[in-house]
Computed example of a mutant assay.
Amino acid sequence: MPGTRYLSTSAMFEIAVISFVVFALFYWCRQRFRQLPLPYYEGRHVIITGCDTGFGNMLAKELDNRGFSVFAGCFTSNGEEELIKSCSHKLQCFPLDVSKTESIQRALLFIKSKLPRDTGIWCLVNNAGIAGSVGPSDWLTRRDFEEVMSVNLYGMIDMTNAFLPLIRKEKGRIVNMTSICGRITLAPVPYCASKFAAEAYSDYLRRDLYKEGVSVHIIEPGYFATNIADPGKVSHLIRAAYEKCDPDVKEYYGSAYVDQAIEKSKKFLGMVTNNNPGLVVDAYLSAVCSRYPAHRYLVGMSAQVVFRILWNLPESISDFILCLGRPVPVNLKTS
Rank of each mutant, 00 (worst) to 15 (best):
86 S>G: 05
67 G>D: 02
89 H>I: 10
15 I>A: 05
112 K>T: 11
85 K>Q: 13
37 P>Y: 06
96 L>R: 05
79 G>W: 05
23 F>E: 11
73 G>Y: 03
39 P>S: 09
40 Y>G: 09
16 A>L: 14
94 F>V: 01
75 F>L: 15
26 F>V: 13
109 L>K: 14
33 F>S: 11
77 S>V: 10
63 L>R: 07
100 K>C: 11
113 S>D: 13
17 V>H: 01
92 Q>M: 14
42 E>N: 13
34 R>S: 15
15 I>L: 13
14 E>P: 01
62 E>R: 15
29 C>E: 10
24 A>Y: 07
99 S>A: 13
99 S>Q: 00
27 Y>S: 14
64 D>K: 05
15 I>K: 09
68 F>W: 10
96 L>I: 00
14 E>S: 14
57 N>G: 03
80 E>L: 07
44 R>M: 11
68 F>K: 08
111 I>Q: 01
105 Q>M: 12
90 K>V: 05
110 F>L: 08
20 F>G: 12
106 R>M: 08
19 S>C: 05
77 S>H: 11
103 S>T: 06
105 Q>Y: 10
60 A>G: 05
100 K>Q: 13
30 R>D: 12
16 A>P: 00
103 S>I: 04
94 F>I: 01
106 R>C: 11
90 K>C: 04
66 R>W: 01
107 A>N: 02
22 V>R: 09
35 Q>R: 15
16 A>K: 11
113 S>A: 14
90 K>L: 07
68 F>C: 04
84 I>C: 10
45 H>N: 14
75 F>H: 15
24 A>I: 02
73 G>L: 05
47 I>H: 05
52 D>Y: 00
113 S>M: 05
106 R>H: 12
111 I>G: 01
46 V>S: 04
102 E>S: 14
101 T>M: 11
35 Q>E: 13
99 S>I: 06
99 S>F: 06
45 H>W: 08
15 I>G: 03
102 E>V: 08
16 A>H: 03
44 R>H: 10
37 P>Q: 06
36 L>K: 14
48 I>C: 07
65 N>D: 13
106 R>I: 05
106 R>Q: 15
45 H>Q: 08
35 Q>M: 12
89 H>T: 13
26 F>I: 12
49 T>F: 11
74 C>Q: 04
59 L>A: 09
89 H>L: 12
112 K>M: 10
46 V>P: 04
112 K>F: 06
62 E>N: 11
99 S>M: 04
65 N>V: 01
33 F>I: 08
73 G>Q: 03
63 L>M: 09
35 Q>A: 15
65 N>S: 15
45 H>F: 15
112 K>D: 04
59 L>N: 05
85 K>V: 12
19 S>G: 08
87 C>H: 01
92 Q>K: 15
22 V>G: 03
58 M>A: 12
103 S>Y: 00
107 A>Y: 04
79 G>V: 00
101 T>H: 12
98 V>C: 07
72 A>R: 08
100 K>S: 10
39 P>I: 07
102 E>T: 12
95 P>A: 00
